[in-house]
């Protein structure tokens, strides 16, 4: 499935580079959805409008710098590198907003490009130490990209309670996994 997406996006990119407006519009729309999920997963839930700003900035960068894509290389890697650069740049500019421990965990819990069957198995194993509700919360917020309020509603708790619960869950995961290499 990931390979299909790569082929599809790459074909649109190549046509867009050649000046095909319809292909370009389609590519930017598809990228917009993925970027929104990518940034939302890595930013504080309270940063809703920041996420949208960053999506727009990134789309603009993709547009302006589209000649730097070499069709001999994978498109997903190119787009990921642009998104990552924009996210780090955003953090640099707004240092205060960064929530380091949560971002660290999010980084290795949810890498969509790399989520094969085996990493999904690893994820299940890592999360299995948590109570069921916390497992669901971590998945909904950190992987699905839901807001704290939405994810809380799914397991029947308030936004504030969800925030506390998520924080505890991540802390427990860090405590359990730090220094353990396998």
């Amino acid at each position: 499935m990931a390979a299909d997406l790569e082929d599809r996006l790459k074909a649109l990119m190549v046509r867009g580079q050649a000046g095909d407006a319809a292909a370009w519009r389609e590519l930017l729309s598809l990228l917009g959805v993925r970027l929104r999920a990518y940034f939302a997963r890595r930013m504080d839930a309270s940063a809703g409008s920041d996420v949208e700003d960053l999506v727009q900035e990134t789309l603009l960068a993709v547009h302006r710098r589209r000649m730097t894509y070499d069709p001999a290389q994978p498109f997903t890697a190119w787009a990921h590198a642009v998104a990552r650069y924009k996210l780090i740049d955003h953090w640099r500019r707004n240092r205060i907003r960064q929530h380091v421990p949560i971002d660290d965990v999010a980084e290795w819990l949810a890498e969509p490009e790399a989520e094969s069957a085996s990493t999904r198995g690893d994820l299940d194993r890592v999360l299995s130490v948590l109570p069921d509700k916390q497992q669901k919360l971590v998945r909904d917020v950190k992987i699905e990209g839901l807001s704290l309020a939405e994810a809380g509603a799914r397991i029947g708790i308030s936004e504030g309670a969800a925030k506390v619960s998520l924080h505890r869950a991540l802390k427990a995961l860090i405590a359990r996994n730090s220094g353990v290499e396998d």
């Binding site: 370009w24 949208e52 727009q56 789309l59 547009h63």
Partner: peptide
């Protein structure tokens, strides 16, 4: 500006630019 409007505006400006090399 809404993201959809941005995408619409950008897709009207697709003249290929000068390459890297």
């Amino acid at each position: 500006m809404k993201t959809d409007d941005l995408i619409e505006a950008l897709s009207l400006d697709v003249t290929p630019g000068v390459g890297v090399r």
